[in-house]
């Protein structure tokens, strides 16, 4: 079995294992797994409305996945996507609400604000890693909580003690009557095109530009990159900044498309953490991220149908997603198993 086939098989087997264990959990808990997965399927593809909502859910997942994947390619683990997404969400919602500008300026400005906010949130761990060698995992985790509390405080002070900001101006909105009517009046918005464009940007950056070449080199081997005359520190900072910008745009999807504002939150959105799953499943490639985001976005949205149609708690899908991450992480053992299998076949 070639390496290439194994690389594709590992995530596929992880997904199957995740779904299987999910089915076992449902069985043990006294639910009907077939009815459960049927409800999930209908929740995703049941009608054009569901499909529209599913695609809408996929957009922030693509961007969160890109953020994690981009940092991964430079050898950095950005667990802070969640926090970068929240500050991006806030920045987009604030710019969308506070300014009155023509649409062709306002919308790009709001998107840019989100990207910039996410980038700043990525800059701090990037700088600390590059200059003081502080491990980015812990810093980004801490930055998540700092983002959550600061954004909540900002919302409170801007709205004079309230718990959410006013709706954004029409000129900053990603809403689309055309897409909405096409999908039976779902909340599908233009964000999906922004997300797909960013997939293209990531591919272009990584595979067509000198910057991407350097970033990947640093990811493969820092020392070799250094010897080759690359500025490792600059590249680490760049990787975190671009990663944070992707994540910030993910927040803009929610601010300018889905919700139209931002509310104070008790906890995280979860999109940033699911972004880790998206990136892992997509092997940190731009196209893989689309695939991973489609899977997890669909699962997350389709799960909403499970309590009504099959009387199964929605969290079963979170269990399945967590299991898939677990199995992808344990890819080594799946790889070993596959190699043994193929050797046995060759022996025959």
């Amino acid at each position: 079995m070639s390496n290439r086939i194994i690389n594709v098989l590992v995530p596929v087997i992880s997904i199957i294992l995740g779904l299987l264990v999910g089915a076992v959990v449902m069985l043990v808990s006294g639910y009907d797994p077939i009815a459960g997965y049927a409800a999930l399927w209908n929740g995703i593809f049941g009608d054009t409305y569901a499909i529209g909502e599913t695609i809408r859910q996929i957009s922030p997942y693509i961007l969160a996945g890109l953020a994690v994947a981009f940092a991964f390619r430079t050898g950095l683990f950005n667990i802070g996507v969640e926090g970068q997404l929240i500050v991006g969400w806030f920045a987009a919602a604030y710019v969308g609400m506070a300014f009155e500008l023509p649409k062709f300026i306002h919308l790009p400005l709001a998107l840019l604000a989100a990207a910039a906010a996410g980038a700043i949130w990525g800059l701090i761990p990037g700088l600390l890693k590059a200059t003081l060698k502080v491990h980015e995992v812990i810093v980004t985790i801490m930055m998540n909580y700092i983002a959550l509390h600061i954004v909540n405080a900002l919302i409170k002070s801007i709205s004079h003690g309230g718990f959410k900001l006013d709706k954004i101006q029409e000129t900053a909105s990603l809403r689309s009557d055309f897409l909405s009517e096409l999908t039976d009046f779902s909340t599908l918005h233009y964000g999906i095109f922004v997300a797909l464009f960013m997939v293209f940007i990531m591919w272009f950056l990584l595979d067509r530009m000198k910057l991407g070449y350097e970033l990947k080199s640093v990811g493969f081997n820092e020392n070799a990159a250094e010897y080759a005359g690359m500025n490792v520190k600059k590249n680490i900072v760049m990787a975190m900044v671009i990663s944070g910008a992707f994540a910030g745009l993910g927040g803009a999807m929610e601010a300018l498309g889905t919700f139209g504002n931002i509310s104070a939150r008790a906890g995280f959105t979860g999109i940033g953490f699911d972004g880790i799953a998206v990136a892992l499943l997509g092997a940190n490639t731009p196209l893989g991220v689309i695939f991973g985001a489609s899977l997890f976005g669909s699962l997350k949205y389709g799960a909403n149908n499970m309590p009504n149609a099959a009387d199964i708690p929605i969290e079963i899908v979170s269990i399945v997603i967590a299991l898939i991450i677990f199995f992808v992480a344990s890819g080594y053992i799946i790889r070993v198993g596959l190699l043994r299998l193929s050797k046995k076949k060759e022996a025959k």
Binding site: F77, I276, S330
Partner: peptide, 11 residues
Amino acid sequence: FRADQVVSGVA
């Protein structure tokens, strides 16, 4: 299984 310990922890 030699998994990435951070990813496993996230899971």
